[in-house]
């Protein structure tokens, strides 16, 4: 499970439309909206990091979105990192990356 906190800034006059668009996106939850400044806090949940990055890009491409920036990244449950760490021993047993000897 990959979770990220994203700040979206919409042009204030288009705020309701942007909030609606965000709400309709899979894996996106709108958590907080500040009308005066057009700022929206969303949390994205994605199966893997690829979907997470794609989601951010989709938000950036929504009409009337000025800025969409990742603020918070939670990866305590990232299975790739867990797998990587469990593979590590003292390092001496690792194989030589194939690219170096090709």
């Amino acid at each position: 499970m990959n979770l990220s906190g994203i700040l979206v800034v919409a042009k204030p006059e288009w705020l309701p439309a942007v909030v609606d668009d965000l709400g309709a996106m899979p894996g996106i939850e709108v958590h907080q909206v500040e009308e005066a400044t057009g700022r929206i806090v969303v949390v994205q949940e994605a199966d893997d990091v690829q979907a997470e990055a794609d989601g951010l890009e989709r938000i950036q491409k929504l009409p009337h979105v000025v800025v969409a920036q990742m603020v918070y990244h939670y990866f305590a449950d990232d299975p790739n990192i867990d797998a990587f760490l469990s593979d590590q021993t003292d390092g001496m047993s690792a194989s030589v990356p194939a690219v170096l000897n090709n």
């Binding site: 906190g5 994203i6 958590h31 700022r39 806090v41 969303v42 949390v43 603020v71 918070y72 939670y74």
Partner: peptide, 9 residues
């Protein structure tokens, strides 16, 4: 995470 994000900005 939403609260933390909001606090950050």
């Amino acid at each position: 995470i939403a609260a933390s994000t909001a606090a950050s900005v």
